[in-house]
Design a protein around this nucleic acid. Structure first.
Lengths: 344, 344
DNA sequence: GAGTGGGTAGAAAGCGGTTTCACACCCTAT
DNA sequence: ATAGGGTGTGAAACCGCTTTCTACCCACTC
């Protein structure tokens, strides 16, 4: 996409030196208004855009921020990415996305890919940073990267790395759900989906136990079943649940996809949701309203989420003082998938 | 992400000139095996990666391909993007994504954004290129861009532009659906969703009429209702359909989202899908299996689709001979949302 | 009326690669 | 012995922009 016109051409036509043109372009030094006007006219005439490679080479930066995420087809990530991109562009940064296709191994390739592009910052979400106890090799790879380039880790631990950790407040999210369900009269609540070695799952489980105990409600261990984050996981975990003698009256799903899977399996088993069992999802993907009944879900403020990530990393890039961790609130959004127990 | 070590450092340590190092890096000229070995060792030692900005400046290219699409949260686009990225990276190109957030106006900004990055190629999908009769301003903007940089337009017309047009074979897709439904015994078929000023919709409608007429089946005009591409559109169009006296026994939805909306509205009206009405979707998004019943849908071969786009544009970039248009087949995937008419 | 200083602007040196050009060296054919 | 032809290598120019260094001009002071 090569405009062939360079700053030299502009300088020649405007009868000034390249330095002057550059000064006008960057505003790095004052220029006589008349001179500026003359040059601006030429700039306009050619719709001049400085060559990015040259500028980056000189500046020693790329104004690109790398993003590694496990699956762009997952609405949680794509929605968040869209918001991040919006804010990044507004601040004259570009987002370079690497989609790891749910492969932890590919993430290393992604790191190399973004390093090759000399990104000024790195945003790491999902995948290996989500591991509860990441293998030392992961830890070290991330720590090395984070030592060289400002890094943000979304919902991960990686305590050794010099990165900003941005996390969602699972504790508050879970508390809202449990309180809501308890308020409806539920005392028998299950938690389905997720994975034991993933931070978010672990956090939600722990917060779940805490909040249940705070309300003096018993936690039935067999109602905590983990089997992943997909629609299929949802189906499978409900099947497993249904084999038990005693069933919960309400189920919290680890995310909306799992919730949709549960809904699907429930329909197959002619279980009436929400009258026989209430369901709450997490993440409030736009899919939450596809289902019948529409899903009650714990929502992120995606706009705020994306903006926080981007503003924080840009601030880090510019050497600003940033907190080393940020906690973002979640908000229960009530739709149609919950009812008082035994309300059929 | 700055490795501070440069080609000069390498040259010094290996006791050769930078030219020699560069030759080894690029393979642009033969180098004595012994020299090469010596340099390679130093290269390895520092895990040297040439500075991208410098290289781009010298090469006068960016090895980046820009992608403009209307909505990355739409599974059709995100799935396709993921495939494209995979193939692009395998061929040492990078994809720079611009998400236009469903705004035609933003697409111009996206064009400027990618131009600023001096992308070597441009892939334009959805949005304004999908318009049946794009306003002259759009036409011209795209034509200008396409004149300067290799461009691919996915599912659009833009006949004036010097771009490769990659399209999906709607004619064959529709024919498969109609034949399948007719084979089940359906004679009363509707086509819901989409938008009259969008190419794909127009093409599907036309192919629909053709295939129906080929089978000597009547087309009931009031069963062709367009109202967009979203889940909500699906709900709305079914509501409108239900107000008619005579109903079709099968509905083709313009895409899976619309189909999901139809399913949802049908459930609300206690219409049994597929026994009262059969439904077929389009695009075979991964969501097609969320629903109950699972959606029969016309599928893209996303892997092939993405690969074709990427390989074609790279070939164009390299000055290769490429066809000016490419047609990709679609394939009906049969699941559970169709039954013979009146089979309840 | 020489000295000081602020405002402008040009020359030139990077930034880190690639590539052209020139040359040295060695080998072969005359 | 000498011209001719590869090979392999270094020096230097170049890609397009930013920025430091330098110099000039023109008040303005003392």
């Amino acid at each position: 996409m090569g405009d062939k016109v360079t700053i030299y051409d502009i300088a020649r036509e405007a009868e000034v030196s390249v330095s002057t043109v550059s000064r006008i372009l960057t505003g790095s030094a004052p220029v006589n208004p008349q001179t500026k006007q003359k040059v601006d006219a030429v700039l306009q005439k050619y719709d001049f855009r400085p060559n990015r490679a040259a500028r980056n080479l000189s500046y020693q930066r790329s104004t690109m921020i790398g993003v590694i995420l496990p699956d762009i087809t997952n609405p949680f990530f794509s929605t968040l990415f869209a918001e991040m991109q919006r804010h990044a562009i507004a601040k004259d940064y570009s987002l370079l996305l690497f989609n790891a296709m749910n492969s932890l191994a590919l993430e290393s390739e992604g790191l190399a890919y973004l390093a090759r592009h000399q990104v000024d910052g790195l945003i790491f979400m999902g995948g290996r940073v989500n591991e509860v106890e990441p293998p030392p090799a992961y830890q070290q790879e991330i720590a090395e990267v984070a030592a060289r380039v400002p890094t943000i880790i979304v919902n991960g631990e990686m305590l050794d790395a010099d990165a900003v950790i941005v996390s969602t407040n699972e504790q508050s999210g879970i508390a809202q759900v449990v309180d809501y369900l308890a308020g409806l009269g539920h005392t028998r609540i299950g938690l389905l989906g997720g994975s034991n070695h993933i931070t978010v799952t672990r956090n939600r489980q722990q917060s779940f136990r805490e909040e249940m105990s705070r309300l003096a409600l018993p936690v039935e261990e067999q109602w905590l079943i983990t089997d992943g984050f997909s629609i299929e996981s949802g189906e499978k975990t409900l099947e497993m649940l249904l084999r038990l003698e005693k069933l919960p009256t309400a189920i919290i799903a680890i995310n909306d996809l799992v919730a949709l899977g549960i809904l699907k399996a429930a329909r197959r088993h002619r279980i009436d949701i929400p009258h026989q069992i209430s369901i709450v999802g997490f993440d409030d993907m736009y899919l939450a309203s596809v289902s019948t009944p529409e899903l009650t879900s714990v929502s992120h403020n995606y706009e705020h989420f994306g903006r926080t990530i981007v503003e924080t990393i840009i601030s880090r890039i510019k050497g600003g003082d940033t907190p080393s961790s940020i906690l973002l609130d979640m908000q229960l959004v009530i739709r149609d998938s919950c009812q008082p127990p035994d309300s059929r």
